[in-house]
Design a protein around this nucleic acid. Structure first.
Length: 402
DNA sequence: CGAGATTCATGTGAAGTATACCTTTAGGCTTAA
DNA sequence: AAGCCTAAAGGTATACTTCACATGAATCTCGTA
């Protein structure tokens, strides 16, 4: 009986008209043929990088703009076009792209350089080498023959926030020591005030050229969505107003186009799963919630055990009334939890740092306050929607074995 | 009553420690001439 | 004798601990009106 139902389900699935014709067009890493409303920026980038084709070192470039304003697509578009021409004309050009935010890949000076070296096809150990040694290996592998290298560092502000700006200074200085190769740095930052905090030397050498990506407005978002939707969905499957609603939602989030595209993709997936023949308005709301939930869950599940345990303690506390939570209380619960799980408790000092990091990740809000006579502490609140709290709890429980 | 001192609970910085991993080097073993 | 393997020595990055000091407003203290 059950088996029959399953077979039927699959057959239905096959005969049903799919909503999507090319879902790829909505995925994050998709680079469309043309990028609307970014002509000027793209022309600028192209102009800056073009000298590479004549074997002249392009200027270093600094790009600002909030998330989802097309920075990454624009730069990948330009660089892939540039590479095509370079290959055709046998110009020795190499473009490396690296996202600095990835935890355990590029979030320290050593790991960043190691990763760059690996991108170059040279295997290097994850630890154990002196940092200047890894610089040497990197330079050696990059400097073997005459060529141009463009290094794109995405979310560079995260990196500098975590370490310090000495790494950028080292990178810019590296160029002077290279014999054959010339290196161009492109930094991408979400934080518009980023350069204000930089060492002036770094600022002047890295910011030879600067480019700002303004946020999209709702109208522009709509046209972007229309373009992609035509590629991705069968005609006529979207209810009227769906695109407008998506655009409005995303515009509210400082014009984040990535968000808008994800929203409509997930809405489509939800509609498909619910056996709807069209994507309706309400699916967008569902999608909004699902995206947020997935983002949080994904983020949390990749955290180390101690982080999860700390978070779990915070969650346990937050269930007792709606009062603000303080570090000391959490640490008590955390210690108990450690015993239950069989993990050695970390010191309060360390837990304090972990709480600060969880705050940076946006899972919680922690504000340092002074309670006067009663000391000083962090006032902690959950920063995730209440609807996803139970799911997160379950995730934490199961991954900690509770 | 109000200015200044006190106090609490924890934030925060610096320095030290443990662990995991790396390269180099020297000694011992095997092998081939 | 040359070549190869292994283990020890010496080094690093990272996560964490230890120690010591910094914070900042509620509360206390005490002089003054």
């Amino acid at each position: 009986m059950a088996e029959k139902e399953l077979t039927n389900y699959f057959e239905d699935f096959l005969t049903k008209q799919p909503l999507f014709v090319n879902k790829k067009a909505l995925q994050i890493n998709y680079t469309p043929e043309d990028i609307p409303h970014r002509d000027e920026q793209i022309k600028n980038i192209a102009g800056i990088l073009a000298p590479a084709l004549r074997m002249e070192k392009p200027s270093n470039l600094f790009i600002y703009g909030k998330t989802g304003t097309g920075k990454t697509v624009s730069i990948t578009k330009v660089s892939s076009d540039l590479m095509k021409i370079a290959e055709k004309n046998n110009i020795p050009l190499k473009i490396l792209y690296l996202n600095c935010k990835l935890k355990r890949v590029a979030d320290t000076e050593y790991r960043l350089i190691a990763q760059l070296t690996r991108e170059f096809g040279v295997e290097v150990p994850a630890t154990g080498l002196p940092t200047d040694e890894i610089y040497k290996i990197f330079m050696r592998s990059i400097d073997q023959k005459k060529m141009l290298v463009v290094i794109i560092l995405d979310e560079i502000d995260q990196l500098v926030k975590k370490i310090d700006d000495g790494i950028l200074y080292n990178l810019t200085r590296l160029n002077h020591e290279l014999k054959n190769t010339e290196m161009t740095l492109i930094g991408i930052s979400n934080d518009l005030t980023f350069t204000a905090e930089l060492d002036p030397r770094v600022k002047s050498s890295l910011g030879e050229e600067e480019l700002v990506f303004p946020p999209y407005n709702a109208i522009q978002l709509q046209s972007i969505l229309k373009n992609r939707v035509e590629l991705a969905f069968r005609p006529q499957v979207l209810e009227d107003g769906v695109i407008e609603k998506c655009a409005a939602y995303a515009a509210r989030e400082h014009g984040d186009a990535r968000r808008a595209l994800e929203l409509i993709r997930v809405a489509g997936e939800i509609a498909e799963r619910n056996n709807e023949i069209r994507v309706l308005m309400k699916h967008i709301d569902d999608a909004q919630e699902k995206i947020e939930r997935d983002r949080v869950l994904d983020n949390i599940s990749t955290q180390p055990k101690q982080f999860k345990l700390t978070l779990f303690s915070i969650f346990s506390m937050s269930f007792i009334g709606n009062k603000p939570i303080f570090t000391g209380d959490i640490y008590e619960i955390y210690k108990d939890a450690c015993v239950k799980v069989g993990l050695k408790p970390l010191t309060q000092r360390r837990v304090s740092d972990i709480i600060a990091e969880l705050d940076m990740l946006g899972i919680i809000n922690a504000k340092v306050i002074s309670k006067g006579r009663y000391g000083r502490t962090r006032e902690i609140r959950l920063a995730i929607p209440t609807s996803t709290v139970p799911k997160v709890r379950d995730l934490l429980k199961s991954s900690l074995g509770l």
